[in-house]
Design a protein around this nucleic acid. Structure first.
Lengths: 155, 155
DNA sequence: ACTGAAAGATAGTAGGC
DNA sequence: GCCTACTATCTTTCAGT
């Protein structure tokens, strides 16, 4: 199944809404040379069918005092199904963990951790992450700069 | 400066909009026990002052046929200012590159690459990424599963 | 700062092509 | 699948506290 049953107009709508979901139906209708009702119906369907998962606000993390982003590469001791699920469940409960990704290769999981600063990260590591059972190692890398940061998928 | 000049109500609004930006002012006003006009004015200010950078639609990547997410760890030959900027600029032009992060530690950059499948990634690597000057090595890791995936910062 | 109410714009619905 | 037209709801503004 390639691109489900999306036509050109659907793709254009998704492209626009990925960039800016505060476009009105009227604005989109103008850009795509369709009526407002058509655009409305398309978007309703794209939401209903799950192409659009949610509409969210993206904040400026520096302004809300989340200056440090860490990528923590985690290696576990065992890889039983139960161990993996347990780790995923527990680590997902920490609000500092924005992403938990199970990976191929040298590490089991990559975590994206947002904290105020290095001290706060250190605290998180010692008092939260490192207390989980079954962890072998955690290697921490930190974001120096973000030349590109997109939520939009190429379509 | 801790949390700029945001009060409790601002924080609550940001929390809500990070989770779901399609809440109406009325819904937010009800939740926070404020008037619609107050909520409206708060949100206007939060946008104007840059706390809210943008409102976007988050798509289901599997539905739009972006099944493979790769993290590509890139090491450059030189680290002159010109070299770094050149790399950042060029790599940011590729639509497959959703994120380009300069990192501390063993690698210079981590790239988040979204492609249809392994073949498409391989193609991207050979024909696009690996053609950039000054690259020493690219190590590719792939996402097996996403137990947690959030755009919302903890606040 | 916050509020209620008015005015204007938008989302959402219905019926027909 | 697309449209026009209508209604409900929401955003936005503003005078008043």
């Amino acid at each position: 199944m390639i691109q489900g049953d999306l036509d050109k107009v659907d793709i254009q709508i998704l492209k626009l809404l990925q960039q800016d979901a505060s476009f009105t139906n009227k604005e989109i209708a103008l850009k795509l040379h369709k009526s407002i009702a058509t655009v409305h119906e398309r978007i309703r369907r794209l939401k209903e069918q799950g192409y659009i998962k949610k509409i969210v606000a993206i904040l400026d993390r520096k302004k809300i005092d989340r200056n440090l982003i860490a990528f923590s590469h985690v290696l576990l001791k065992e890889h039983t199904a139960a161990t993996l699920v347990k780790f995923e469940t527990e680590v997902s409960k920490f609000p500092e963990v924005m992403e938990c990704l199970q990976m191929t290769g040298a590490h089991d999981f990559i975590l994206r951790i947002a904290t105020r600063d290095m001290d706060t990260y250190h605290e998180f590591l010692r008092n939260k992450l490192a207390t989980l059972p079954n962890i072998t190692t955690v290697q921490s890398y930190f974001v120096l700069s973000e030349p590109k940061s997109e939520t939009a998928y190429p379509i």
